[in-house]
Design a protein around this nucleic acid. Sequence first.
DNA 1: TTCAAACCCGCAATCGATTGCTTAAATTAT
DNA 2: ATAATTTAAGCAATCGATTGCGGGTTTGAA
Lengths: 345, 345
Amino acid sequence: MRPKKRTTIYDIAAKLNITASSVSRALNNSNHVNEDTKKLILKTAAELNYKRNVLASNLRKGENKTIGVVVPRINQNFFSNVISGIEETTYSKNFNLIICQSNESHEKEIKCVNALINQHVDCIIISVAAEGTDYTHLQNVIDHNIQLIQFDRVVDELETLKVINDNELATLEGITHLIEQGYKRIALLEGPQNLNIFRQRKAGYLKALRKHKMPVIDELIVENAWTKELGAEGTRKLLSLPEPPDAIFASTSDFSALGVLEVATSMGFKVPDELGILGYANEPFTELTSPSISTIDQFTNYMGKTIANLYFQESENKDSVVVPRTISVKPKLIVRASTSRTQQV
Amino acid sequence: MRPKKRTTIYDIAAKLNITASSVSRALNNSNHVNEDTKKLILKTAAELNYKRNVLASNLRKGENKTIGVVVPRINQNFFSNVISGIEETTYSKNFNLIICQSNESHEKEIKCVNALINQHVDCIIISVAAEGTDYTHLQNVIDHNIQLIQFDRVVDELETLKVINDNELATLEGITHLIEQGYKRIALLEGPQNLNIFRQRKAGYLKALRKHKMPVIDELIVENAWTKELGAEGTRKLLSLPEPPDAIFASTSDFSALGVLEVATSMGFKVPDELGILGYANEPFTELTSPSISTIDQFTNYMGKTIANLYFQESENKDSVVVPRTISVKPKLIVRASTSRTQQV
DNA sequence: TTCAAACCCGCAATCGATTGCTTAAATTAT
DNA sequence: ATAATTTAAGCAATCGATTGCGGGTTTGAA
């Protein structure tokens, strides 16, 4: 499929016996062109099926109007919703979106970021992979004067714009809700602690217990229960304890909570009466299980819009320095059957 | 945030007292450069934190290494999985992915496609919005010598590469399964018939009935039951008939099937004994409902990879003409509880 | 020792669009 | 009728990287 040459402004200029300058000006609606010739140029451009070569234009103008997004997985509800929100905003500003997924691989994340730097994108929006600990590739973004915005899984040490959920506060509210429902021994399924979000959720859990003067029981805290399978495995251990918990907070995700539910049901624990279950993320399926699972909604689409707006807002005051700051979106506790002891299901 | 100037090959050349040509050749690993100077250039490039300006490079080389994707919604399981599959392949070929969503709006779809043409992408992968009937914007893609690949929701009239599911065959199998389970009055919730996928599913339904010499009963066919709400509404009508159906095929989506399930349950119909339910798409939640919903899996990730591979395969034989052709992926029937009459739940 | 081949590297054009500067023409003011 | 001003359009440089061509140097063979 050898591409035939596409019409350029020179083709239009040649046809009308004028110079490319005028054509360019006409196409950019400059007022330094005669109205009649402008009309003529636009007409001919349409006839010749002309499309501006954005590469050339951007090269000359030194801009790009492109934003790169790097997420662990495109096909994960949380991320695809955030991306959708970002897209709605960037589209309205005529920006392009280049999307990459790191597949939770630190190595691929680095490659993606470097590819985006090569592309001279105006901004890189990233939620880091679970794997890494070294973030020179992100520092590199900053060094290239590309606006860097981190969201959700952010690297605290890097001074960038950040959009996060207030994981700690949301967790605090969630656990408080559990306590109010009368649960006494609340277990925690935690995620990899190198990710800030999981650290914050753990902090919220501990804070809630402290606030209500409840003891922190080590054997009720299960490390790395990220997936449905790991959540199920952790639950099996927890429920086999001499003194099993009466509630489990699957801080990693709703998938993990689903694992909890399945194991609990198969082991004969009644949810929510004998075991309360709280998930995280408000995946669509959480209202479909029986009983439905209480969880925490993160306003994903809104987050996406917030992130994109943050960039545009920032890029408008060109002269001043970017002040690193964090926008914290407060997630919302969604109470469903799995933790509603008072109103039995 | 005024971007400082980034290092170019001229900066490197100036520093080493050579010309940009040599720098370029060294960076492209041409063998027309002395090994020592090549090393020196690469070293200096690294020191100066040089990143190739892909815009300039692409402009000069007349290539772009970018593929545009237009889907109705990024945050829909089917599409995000296909995109994920596409990304895996394009990433390995060092191609960029620009992603747009039409939000089911024909107008936005046109704008997205035009933006991608402006970007001089090498290929546009599209699943069309439900709205439109005019497809000159897609013809336009072809006229600009951009490879066009349609998937899932394709416009039959356009002679392009197509990757689709064999909706008719899958439906035929699904309905046959229902018949084998002993269902006699099978209703159909259909989608907008301007979309080929829904026409095909309807065709499969009719074919199956004909094949098994069962009558087509008009009152059992409900138009436009695309969403969960519309599916629920249609179901309410169906189950209120003097002779209600004993099975419902929600051909539009699993969401619609979910609406069916909820209405059936609330109206006291026992699923699957009194009412069989078959969905479409194998959304993750279908195995979580009670009873779990039988559905049809579309091998989404695989489809994505197939689409991307199709492009690369095609772009390699540059000289020959592209033969319009269709790759049909056969979806798989997933039998779950909602249609398993013999093995009661 | 001499000539050809091989090897490096520089020159300059090119990709397509944009834009500051300049000139020519048209319009207005004096 | 002439000078001042506005308007329109051309010239040419520029963005950064690539590449065909050619000149100069080195190497090796005769």
